[in-house]
Design a protein around this nucleic acid. Structure first.
Length: 446
RNA sequence: GUGGAUGUAGCUCAGGGGUAGAGCGCCUGACUGUGGAUCAGGAGGUCGUGGGUUCAAAUCCCAUCAUCCACCCCA
């Protein structure tokens, strides 16, 4: 009796089958095109890092989610990477000769042992673009522009890039005057503003035993509305006495100025002083993109982390970057049918049918011609009923079928059938490649 | 990590202590040169997994795993 291992994958991980893989590749290609358009260079690092490289960077809560990756008898303490930014910092410290500013992108999986949910997986891809070695706010503005470019090219209409600054947040902490050990709770409560509203935040602050007069001052800050510069002006009024906050505000003003010059539309971003972000390594501007529908968490995140490289080397460099989560982007795009019709179910463009054994040779020759003409062509392996072969093409979503029977062969033609419209035309053998290519171009335009 | 819901055919689900149903899909034929229709036949399920209660469990109980939802956190 054969016993079988139940086929399954670890929690929070999944296979990505061809139909879905085609959509993923489309999204990744758009992102890569934009990254390269801005002069970011590709980089790849190992999936595994020495544990000491990863620890102490993300904060205690996040660190619990890092996968250990040792092997039997292994002498090294190894973990699976949790993000792409920390490995980048390791690279910068290891190769100090790289010319600065160093702009790199990386599109690779990371692992986090979280409890899975929709849009939340234990293995997922991050698409990161980072600039190392420049403290210019232009680098940060470029990050925001990157987000705007990618999302609008993917067809997103409703998205909001939230922008804040760690220094400004620190200023709010000083302004509130709460002791250091309460700061974390304070930030966490504020961060929920969009979710639980002013009343919810008030309640949470009370629970955290923040004094009533401080709560009032904070609420006044959080209620500030308006366009980016209005919000910043208001912050200047209220927080101007705190040096760190002033620096943050000045940085953001510069950043917003660049956004305007770069042509990033105002309605795509806002200064949101309540947006905090958990990762400990951020030091300056931070950004996060949310879509309202469906509620799926943030689809991009990022910010400036000027101190992180300093944990690997005496010679530190300022750095800033942003990260796209393609799983969530794809989930949203699927929910709203945002994929262009040219992103099909299959890579194959033509099915070369085989009429019978006698015509196999001619059919294979024609398939070779089609392939040489740049057409992705699949040959049906079992000669026989055309109906079966048509069904196969239909099921796979192959747009065109070529039929070469004895009648066609006698007249030096083959029938080209459009599966979608059911139109069929006899075309001379030497014109077939052009004929199909032209039809594919027309499909593209539609 | 905490709390909750769900888990029956490829898919969507119904049923409910006496060893399984529907719709859609799939396969075959009517249709020996053409896939979305019709008709006729057919295949396919250890009722998530493991234990317990019972003469009997898919149905009740426990555990476990997976998915989803909220919290936490985040891409």
């Amino acid at each position: 009796m054969a016993t079988f291992i139940k086929p399954r994958v670890p929690r929070g991980m999944r296979d990505i089958l061809p139909e879905q893989m085609i959509r993923r590749q489309y999204v990744i290609n758009v992102i890569r095109d934009v990254f390269e358009e801005f002069g970011f260079e590709p980089l790849q690092t190992p999936a595994l890092e020495l544990s000491e490289v990863l620890t102490g960077k993300y904060g205690p809560d996040a660190e619990k989610l890092i996968y250990q990756a040792g092997h039997t008898g292994g002498k090294e303490d190894i973990s699976m990477r949790y993000d792409l930014s920390v490995p980048l910092c390791r690279v910068i410290a290891m190769y100090p000769q790289l010319p600065k500013p160093f702009k790199r992108y990386q599109i690779d999986p990371v692992w986090r042992a979280e409890r899975p949910q929709k849009g939340r997986y234990r293995q997922f891809f991050q698409c990161d673009a980072d600039t190392v070695g420049s403290d210019s706010m232009l680098a940060d503005a470029e990050n925001v522009n990157l987000i705007y470019q990618v999302l609008s090219r993917l067809g997103f209409k409703q998205f909001e890039i939230n922008i804040n600054d760690r220094k400004l947040i620190t200023g709010i902490g000083q302004f509130a005057g709460v002791p250091t050990e309460q700061l974390g709770g304070l930030y966490r409560s504020i961060d929920k503003l969009d979710k639980i509203g002013l009343d919810g935040v008030t309640a949470e602050l009370r629970e955290n035993e923040i004094p009533e007069d401080v709560i009032e001052k904070l609420l006044a800050l959080l209620q500030v509305e308006g366009d980016a510069l209005t919000v910043l002006n208001e912050m200047k009024q209220q927080l101007g006495d705190f040096e760190t906050a002033s620096e943050g505000i000045a940085d953001l003003e510069e950043l917003i100025g660049y956004l305007t010059t770069l042509g990033v539309p105002e309605e795509c971003y806002r200064v949101n002083v309540a947006m905090v972000r958990g990762l400990e390594y951020y030091t300056g501007p931070i950004y996060e993109t949310v879509v309202e529908e469906p509620k799926i968490g943030s689809i991009t995140g990022g910010g400036r982390y000027d101190e992180l490289i300093g944990s690997f080397s005496k010679q530190s460099f300022p750095a800033t970057g942003t990260s796209f989560g393609i799983e969530r982007i794809i989930d949203v795009m699927e929910e709203f049918n945002m994929f262009p019709t040219t992103v099909g179910k299959t890579v194959t463009q033509v099915l070369m049918t085989v009429f019978d054994d006698d015509l196999m040779e001619e059919s294979l020759k024609l398939a070779t011609t089609l392939r040489q003409g740049g057409l992705r062509t699949e040959v049906y392996f079992r000669p026989g009923k055309i109906s079966t072969q048509m069904k196969y093409a239909d099921a796979k979503g192959i747009p065109y079928a070529v039929i070469l029977g004895s009648d066609e062969l006698a007249s030096g033609t083959a029938a080209v059938r459009d599966l979608a419209t059911r139109e069929q035309e006899n075309v001379p053998l030497d014109k077939i490649v052009d004929h199909i290519n032209q039809r594919l171009d027309n499909d593209e335009i539609k």
